[in-house]
Simulated assay, not measured.
Amino acid sequence: MKKIFYVLLGICMLSCNSNEDTVEETSIQDLQPDKAYIHYVDRPTNNLNADWYYRFNYENGNLIKISGWLKGKIFSSDAYTYLTYQGNEAKISYSFDSDLTNVYTLQNNRPIKEVLYIQDYVQGTKTYTYENDKIKIYLKPTNSLSDYFVTYYFNPVTKNLIKSELLRKSQGTDVELSTTIYSDFDNAQNPFKKMGLVSDDLYEKSLSANNFRKKEVTVEQFAHPANGNVAMPPSTTIQELTYKYDSKGQVLLYYPL
């Protein structure tokens, strides 16, 4: 599992095809799952691999370590992602890439700024703004003409995501807009709540009270030199996420295969 700084919404996520069966429950203590198949976290596949799962460690209620990393078709259970906390700062580092570090500034346990470092050089920054039923994120990569603006919209009653918009601009002009509609929420607690700093996929999943099982993503490209000055009609893809649940209706991220 590696932080993907520039892919904010995981637009290319594949559909999940596992069966939504009820099986015996395993422990999701205080929304702190200790294991999860990569299929449910950030790498959906058609067939679950019994050996491909992440392991999570917590301390004082915070996620501090994730064991496991998939590169291409090779999964390593001995690769680690570390999270350390000091004051209002959280730092993410990786055993499999010592050059890469993400540093968050937190306020009320929520990120307000993120800085990506590669070999101690700043590669980009994100700033987070919180409004009523809305989160706005501005991403500025270093040495790039592009800026990225993300807005997440929430249902004020259910506290679940309704929609997100990712707008890419270049030199102040719109290049591309991706709109995601979230639906088919379950009634289960969200087991991803404490994982939101780790990756963009997990940030998106961590935001709601419950768990979305359908995403409808529409991408529109505008007439711009980056697009050959040709506008493209909107194209839409649908991704479905299928979970298993225990007898109490809670999500199972790991279970015997």
Rank of each mutant, 00 (worst) to 15 (best):
Q107N: 15
F75P: 05
S98F: 13
T105A: 12
N88K: 12
N108P: 10
Y117T: 00
N88P: 02
V103I: 15
D120I: 03
Y130T: 05
Y117C: 03
D99F: 10
D99E: 13
Y117F: 14
T101V: 15
L83T: 07
T101G: 01
V122W: 07
Q107K: 15
T127N: 13
S95K: 08
T84H: 10
E131W: 03
T125Y: 01
N109M: 08
L116G: 02
E131C: 11
T84S: 14
E114Y: 08
N102K: 08
Y117H: 05
S76G: 12
N88T: 06
G87L: 06
N102V: 13
Y117M: 06
Y117G: 02
E89D: 09
N108K: 15
T127Q: 11
D78G: 00
R110F: 06
K134Y: 00
Q86L: 13
Y82C: 02
Y82K: 02
T125R: 05
S95D: 05
Y121P: 00
F75L: 04
D120E: 12
D97F: 03
G87F: 08
N88Q: 15
L106W: 08
F96L: 03
D99I: 03
I118F: 07
T125I: 10
E89K: 15
S93T: 15
Q86F: 08
D133M: 01
